[in-house]
Design a protein around this nucleic acid. Structure first.
Length: 913
RNA sequence: GCGGGCGUAGCCGAAUUGGCAUAGGCGCCGGACUUAGGAUCCGGUGGGCGCCAGCCCGAUGUGGGUUCGAGUCCCACCGCCCGCACCA
């Protein structure tokens, strides 16, 4: 063989890596484990094995982590670099439903396809550690973690989760009271309810996002702003339902604070902070006039309390019924009543109207304020004034207390509402001179505010909170946007929830020894999507055999939980399982976890920005629970996170606006045609929806894997989104061919290496390349590393023979990027072992620095001359050489410069008037 | 509206702490090999002038500022991308 034949070489080395287990990495205690080598855990966000297969955009991050892993391995680290599959959930099930095949079959088939495609990229995973979240040996432990969540409560005093048995013991011992009552005074049912209400996994009647089109409920995170399902784009309706919830809100503060511990992109941290949505302020109590009721509000502006001229409750607020009087108070304006003869009717009408409004409608109606008067009044605790209580849908039940004090003078929304209903507006902060706007939300001295007058906002807030606390009218408080995690799904293809339902609402967890609770076979696993929009959801497991659904324990008949876990469950902890994937007695062995997760957990985690909130927040939450329970040793799972950008490509739409297959579009004389019809070009993320995917297969066939890997890295910075340009690949391919030709004779196949030492110039360039590539890889700057390879290669072009030292350094530097090519060259250079295990080349810092440098001579900052000087030049000499320059002389005009700035060894700047 | 980020050649993109702007690739131009080239190889490529040596000029979205010196730092603006959005 003489010309570079990528087909043969790639097949040869991929086979050899598999046969020799080149990338297997042992755990502590296993044969071959070398405790002297530092560990590194490099992880990709694992994929859903969809039925469509990969396009060239998918492996971008995988190639990057593979290169990084190979680099670190050659530097002597023990690198954990695994891959697996997130295979439960809607995509797999939807596909199965469409094709009529059991999801297990399609999932297995897709996993096999994905595995084969990933292997074709030459990725150095330790395939012995692979698994899918659908493997019973894996979801056994997902269920096990659920049982820990069910069996734990959050102790606010210790700020951590603890076994619920501890709580029960403290209650039984009398060191703790249950809502002020002694444990002995509670009935067994009350005790159970008390404990169940404190678990991290609990059942609650909550308003859910019910998606009839998918036959399941969805988490808030899975619903788009338009009120549709993220998957499938079906309409979603709000309705109350009894569901499993996970108490992630208990961890809000820690999830927020611990973002400071991790090295993540600032944008992702910002998105998580935004999602958690911490607000500081106060809870304030407003007594309802003439009733034995109190409305509690949350406000971030307690300093404006004197300006609260009305209140608003969310339509669903539970207190509404108890404050509505039988008749309208005297002198109620007609515009407040919604045309109803009595408050009761007005409230009912408004509630019905608000509930029937979709999110989309609310969006479209541009925030025009609507509402209705409840007929009730509350007392402003600061001013003592009675203020009307309204119902309006601009107040959301899900945030704060579902009620607000309205301060139109300092809040835009309240101002708008006050204008619609003709409510009084009292300014309590002095706006700046010349203020012509409406609500003023800025800083300024308090006015119309009694004891606060003259104080700036930051001073007035704590003063008011202190006053409220004195009066018993409120207290300082913190609120979060984050809500508990809705954990039930009515679909089939998910982890069964290992709970039994007994008489009287008893919840009985399965024992750890009963896991895994396997998914039962059902005849029809399809979701019921033909139900009316308001029908009770029917979990798919409701159609499981009776023998599975009913269990007798201690003579009592229990029914199995029929909901399954959501998509995200399996991906919440898979990084832990990779540390010890075959462990049959624990989710991860203590020693393996301590070793691989040491330091900051996963050392590098690479994936798409689309998981910024969902997956990363849920996984952090589970990790912290496991941390509290002593199962893991780090407070955070992912020490360093990196988001790869998207690969973009041209897309084409026909005259109907429908996307057509970009691969079938031809360009003729600047016009794009699809089957002879003109199409319009646009641009976007490569994928199925824009029909602009490029298959790796055609690239493999023509250029080979190594060229594709190099090209994807060369396109630009890893975190940037960048356009795919098939035309550009040829540049990278030429590099591969050129390097091969420089080392292997094109006709004879002889090795073109000399045993001579490189001349100083080439040696210096090689040392500089080693230094630069090493630094680039440490900083994940793959694109500039590739440019360095081109430069070194360009210096080798035209040489009869390449000095062995240069060739061997080059091949090892390039090996992480182009492993097949470099294995072959390494073997031909006479090395029996894999280049993947060869030591990373070292450079001599003394040789990186050049002997001579170009001294730039500037006059007033403009380059006027360049002089080659010794790198060790002194300041005086540099100054003298610069001033002596003939090219500088005209600018000096014989006069002395005002100043000469010398920056050794590169620059002299002469300042003249 | 709030938050995060980005604007450098025809295109993708380089540029430690402020210090030679435009590395590297594509494209383009010229040449070689060739029946052929949309393969491959060699060279050139900011603009202008020039016989290769060389000289002049311009430029990092716009306008200011700091500095001996700004792609880089500061202020204002323009444009684009992403996330959140009636969150009290």
């Amino acid at each position: 063989m003489s010309a570079y034949d990528h087909h043969t070489i790639e097949a040869k080395w991929q086979r050899r890596w598999a046969e020799q287990g080149t990338f297997r990495v042992p755990n502590p205690g296993e044969p071959g484990f070398d405790s002297s080598r530092p560990k590194l855990y490099v992880l990709d966000m694992f994929p859903y094995p969809s039925g469509e297969g990969l396009h060239v955009g998918h492996p971008l991050g995988y190639i990057a982590t593979d290169i990084y892993s190979r680099f670190q391995r050659m530097q002597g680290r023990l690198v954990l670099h695994p891959m697996g599959f997130d295979a439960f959930g809607l995509p797999a099930e939807q596909y199965a439903v469409e094709t009529g095949v059991h999801p297990r079959i399609t999932t297995e088939r897709n996993v096999a396809t994905f595995t084969r495609q990933l292997r074709a990229f030459g990725l150095s995973y330790d395939w012995d550690r692979t698994f899918a979240t659908t493997d019973p040996g894996y979801y056994r432990w997902t269920q096990w973690i659920f049982l820990r969540l069910f069996g734990s409560w959050y102790d606010p005093e210790q700020g951590k989760a603890r076994p619920i048995a501890d709580l029960e013991a403290e209650l039984a011992a009398g060191t703790r009271l249950a809502d002020g009552r002694a444990w002995d005074d509670l009935t067994p049912a009350e005790r159970r309810a008390y404990l169940d209400g404190r678990r991290l996994a609990y059942l609650d009647e909550v308003p859910v996002n019910w998606c009839p089109g998918l036959g399941t409920v969805l988490a808030n995170e899975e619903v788009t702003r338009e009120g549709r399902s993220e998957r499938g784009d079906f309409p979603v309706y709000r309705r109350p339902l009894r569901q499993w919830m996970l108490r992630i809100t208990a961890y809000a503060e820690r999830l927020l604070d611990d973002l400071d511990l991790v090295d993540w992109p600032e944008s992702i941290k910002a998105m998580q902070r935004n999602w958690i949505g911490r607000s500081e302020g106060a809870r304030v109590l407003f007594p309802v006039e003439g009733r034995n009721a109190v409305i509690e509000v949350f406000t971030t502006r307690p300093d404006t309390l004197f300006g609260a001229t009305y209140m608003v409750l969310a339509p669903e607020h539970p207190l509404v019924d108890s404050i509505v009087p039988d008749t309208w108070p005297a002198e109620t304006p007609a515009s407040w009543t919604g045309g109803a003869v009595a408050p009761r009717q007005a409230v009912d009408d408004y509630r019905r109207w608000a509930a029937g409004r979709s999110e989309l409608e609310r969006q479209a109606e541009a925030r025009e304020k609507t509402g209705v008067f409840t007929g009730g009044y509350a007392l402003n605790p600061a001013s003592g004034a009675p203020i009307p209580v309204f119902l309006a849908d601009y107040v959301l039940m899900g945030y704060g207390t579902g009620a607000i004090m309205a301060v139109p003078g300092e809040d835009d929304r309240d101002w708008e509402f006050a204008e619609v209903f003709g409510l009084p507006i009292i300014r309590t902060v002095q706006p700046p001179d010349g203020w012509e706007g409406k609500a003023y939300t800025g800083d300024g001295p308090a006015i119309n505010s009694g004891f606060l007058n003259g104080l700036l906002v930051d001073v007035a807030k704590p003063r008011m909170i202190a006053w409220l606390e004195e009066q018993g009218s409120g207290q300082g408080a913190v609120t979060y946007k984050l809500r508990d995690w809705l954990f039930s799904r009515q679909r089939y293809w998910g982890e069964p929830i290992p709970i039994l339902h007994g008489p009287g609402g008893e919840l009985r967890p399965l024992g750890d020894d009963e896991l895994p609770l396997l998914l039962p076979e059902v005849e029809d696993y399809r979701p019921r999507t033909d139900l009316a929009d308001d029908a009770e959801p029917e979990p798919a497991l409701g159609r499981a055999p009776e023998a599975w659904k009913t269990v007798v324990r201690d003579g009592v008949a229990y029914g199995r939980e029929l909901n399954t876990m959501p998509q995200w469950a399996g991906s919440c902890w898979y990084y832990l399982r990779f540390c010890d994937p075959h462990n049959a007695t624990a989710l991860v062995g203590v020693e393996a976890e301590r070793y691989w997760m040491a330091g900051r957990g996963v050392d590098l985690y690479v994936g798409g920005v689309e998981h910024a909130v969902l997956h990363l927040l849920y996984a952090r939450f589970w990790h912290k629970v496991l941390f509290d329970l002593g199962r893991v040793s780090t407070p955070e799972p992912f020490g360093r996170l990196f988001n790869q950008g998207y690969i973009l490509a041209d897309a084409f739409q026909d005259e109907r606006g429908v996307y057509v297959a970009a691969a079938e579009v031809e360009e003729r004389a600047g016009v794009h045609l699809h089957r002879g019809r003109p199409v319009v070009r646009s641009f976007g993320k490569m994928g199925k929806s824009l029909k602009n995917s490029v298959s790796p297969d055609e690239i493999f066939a023509r250029y080979g894997v190594d060229t594709l890997r190099l090209y994807e890295m060369f396109m630009g910075p890893l975190d940037a989104s960048k356009p795919w340009t098939t035309r550009d690949i040829v540049g990278v391919h030429r590099f591969v061919l050129r390097l091969w030709r420089a080392l292997v004779h094109p006709e004879t196949g002889a090795l073109l290496v000399s045993e001579d030492l490189p001349e100083p110039e080439l040696a210096a360039l090689t040392h500089r390349t080693i230094a630069a590539v090493t630094a680039d890889l440490e900083g994940l700057r793959f694109n500039t590393a590739v440019a360095r390879f081109f430069e070194l290669n360009n210096a080798l072009v035209g040489r009869e023979r390449i000095p062995r030292w240069v060739a061997e350094a080059f091949v090892r530097l390039l090996a992480p990027f182009a492993p097949h090519l470099c294995e072959e060259l390494w073997e031909r250079l006479g090395h029996p072992g894999s280049v993947a295990l060869a030591p990373w080349p070292e450079y001599d810092p003394a040789l990186v620095a050049e002997d001579t440098v170009t001294l730039v001579v500037q006059v007033n900052g403009k380059v006027r001359d360049r002089i080659v000087v010794s790198a060790a030049i002194g300041e005086e000499e540099a100054r003298a050489r610069a001033l002596a320059s003939a090219k500088v002389a005209p600018y000096l005009q014989g006069s002395a410069p005002t100043r000469v700035v010398v920056r050794l060894p590169h620059l002299v700047n002469i300042v003249v008037p």
